[in-house]
């Protein structure tokens, strides 16, 4: 085995020998399951003041993108915890004794963050399909499960989750404080970004900038999302700015992850280990 393969194997054992990964997976399943079921009910039901039944093409995109609409916090949190745990428990010392070539350790960790992020994407996608398709079918809407558009959306969900895990890894390595990382991840994803995206719609210049927020870029990459859909669902929201294309969204998200990881790498690779 090459040093890099060994580093990946070691990092996989590091992740799967703790309970953190599956506790996060359980939260993900519950969160996405309830959201996808709820969305599916909302877009098919004839509710007073609601949008009424949406065409299957629109409804399925909204329902099956539940993971990236609400649960990106899970891969982000995973990445941040993976990075800060080494500082919290001072395990960087044995890590760098076993492999003093720090770039090898770093690359192994990047690969595993992407892999586990993708695993969360698969779990999230399967959950949104399981919960969402059941409600859609019960209300007589076509679930479009074999549709290439739906399959493409699910595949891009997996990619988005992998990138958010990388984003968390970079953020965590940069902050080093586990408490700070958890607070920032939760506050940013649950309050700051959603509010910014909605408020930014009030002016053209801010709406244009808001397209580059990580959540907005993710919605562009995936091709659907609840906040992105508000403008389309509610015609009273004025001046909808054209969202980024899929490719642009993917590039923005990748660039952001790579930038964070690069800054973190430069500091971590040089720093004395306490």
């Amino acid at each position: 085995m090459s040093a890099l393969t060994r580093a990946v194997a070691a990092e996989l054992v590091r992740v799967f020998s703790l309970r953190t990964w599956w506790v996060l997976a359980v939260v993900l399943v519950l969160y996405v399951g309830v959201t996808a079921g709820g969305f599916a009910f909302f877009v098919t039901a004839e509710t007073e003041g609601g949008p009424g039944p949406l065409p299957a093409e629109v409804a399925t995109q909204l329902v099956y993108s539940s993971t990236t609409s609400v649960a990106l916090v899970i891969p982000l949190l995973f990445g941040a915890l993976a990075a800060t745990s080494e500082y919290r428990w001072r395990t960087l010392t044995p890590t760098f004794l076993a492999q003093p070539r720090r770039p090898v350790v770093l690359v192994g960790r990047l690969v595993v963050a992407l892999l586990v992020g993708a695993l969360y994407g698969v779990i999230g996608a399967l959950t949104s399909v399981a919960a969402g398709a059941a409600v859609l079918a019960a209300n007589g809407v076509d679930t479009l499960l074999g549709d290439p558009d739906v399959l493409g959306l699910l595949a891009r969900t997996v990619l988005a989750c992998a990138l958010w895990s990388l984003l968390g890894l970079g953020l965590g390595a940069l902050l080093t404080s586990q408490i700070a990382a958890i607070v920032i991840v939760l506050v940013f994803t649950q309050f700051v970004e959603p509010i910014l995206r909605i408020v930014a719609g009030a002016w053209e210049w801010s709406a244009e900038l808001a397209r580059y927020l990580p959540g907005a870029a993710t919605d562009s990459l995936v091709g659907a999302g609840i906040i992105a859909s508000i403008g389309q669902l509610d015609p009273t929201v004025p001046g909808v700015i054209e969202p980024l294309t899929r490719l642009e969204g993917g590039l923005v998200l990748t660039a952001l992850s790579v930038l964070l990881v690069a800054v973190a790498a430069v500091t971590t690779l040089r720093r004395d280990v306490e």
Binding site: R6, A7, S17, W89, T91, T93, G108
Partner: peptide
């Protein structure tokens, strides 16, 4: 320098692989 949630054997396993 140990994660409290990991077993002693798994701690060694990580180092042995790395």
């Amino acid at each position: 320098v140990f994660h409290p949630g990991r077993s002693g054997r798994d701690h060694l396993r990580v180092l042995q692989l790395a």
